[in-house]
């Protein structure tokens, strides 16, 4: 499998406070990797480091065969798309105008034909083509989150970093976002999905990277990584584990007693 992103012994932190203490992992092309772990374990810090918003304190990152440090801000935006945590602010853009902002790194002062094609493609991938002329303020939460993803897709990045993109969405809207992510990976893009939702990670992602205290506790396919013992060790919570009757993927419920 072709590797798009490789982190070796990555160390990141804020001043003297080290959050990630030697993390190594790889991301393959077309792969969706979930990053999970307790609050403060370094999930969002990892994404900020990969975006060069935090300087590396140690280790190295290789993106598409080049050291991360060799990327300028614009070049990085062409390789990596980012969907930060939280809702899009209430600005007066239409969906299309928002997605066009994603062409910043690739276009000049005005958008050309190539840019318009990329915007159309991003809208299509995020299933927003019919809502393109809608003001953002008139969208549902799920549609707004898909618009945020389309903004990142207009950058035509090889890698997409998503920070809890479904945390404030209901089940249906979460499923909409999940569909978009699956479609992207089939189209050959790779993704790193930071999430608190182990069940979402299990059913959606190819592998799960479980963080504890700034280090990798385990990394592998959901069926191998998720176990009652792992959840207890990482989160300090007793949990019960089931297998999905059809897919065989693990399902986690906290609490040692059966839930009625």
């Amino acid at each position: 499998m072709e590797v798009t992103l490789r982190a070796s012994e990555l160390r990141l932190g804020y001043g003297a406070r080290e959050v990630l203490r030697g993390l190594s992992f790889e991301l393959g092309r077309g792969e969706l990797l979930a990053v999970a772990g307790p609050n403060g374990s370094g999930k969002s810090t990892l994404l900020r480091g990969l975006l060069r918003l935090l300087p590396l304190q140690g280790g190295s990152v290789e993106l598409l065969g080049r050291p991360l440090a060799s990327y300028g801000r614009r070049q990085l935006a062409m390789a990596v798309g980012w969907v930060p945590q939280g809702e899009l602010p209430q600005v007066g853009f239409t969906v299309r105008q928002l997605v066009e902002v994603g062409r910043y790194s690739r276009s000049g002062l005005a958008l050309g034909r190539r840019d318009e094609q990329a915007v159309e493609e991003a809208l299509r991938l995020a299933d927003l083509a019919e809502l393109a002329a809608r003001p953002l303020g008139e969208l549902s939460g799920g549609e707004r989150q898909r618009a945020a993803i389309a903004l990142a897709l207009a950058q035509e990045p090889e890698v997409l970093l998503l920070d809890e993109p479904t945390s404030h969405l209901d089940l249906r809207h979460e499923e909409e976002v999940a569909c978009v992510l699956r479609r992207l990976c089939r189209a050959g893009r790779s993704g790193v999905l930071v999430t608190h939702d182990l069940n979402l990670a299990s059913r959606l992602c190819d592998r799960i990277l479980l963080l504890k205290d700034g280090r990798a506790f385990d990394c592998g396919p959901p069926g191998e990584v998720l176990s009652e013992a792992a959840v207890l060790a990482v989160y300090g919570v007793a949990a019960r584990m089931w297998r999905h009757p059809e897919t065989g993927k693990p399902l986690v419920l906290p609490g040692s007693h059966p839930v009625v």
Binding site: R73, A77, W82, L151
Partner: peptide, 10 residues
């Protein structure tokens, strides 16, 4: 759109 998203688009 906020400083983080602006940095994200380059």
């Amino acid at each position: 759109l906020g400083e983080e998203r602006a940095a994200g688009v380059g």
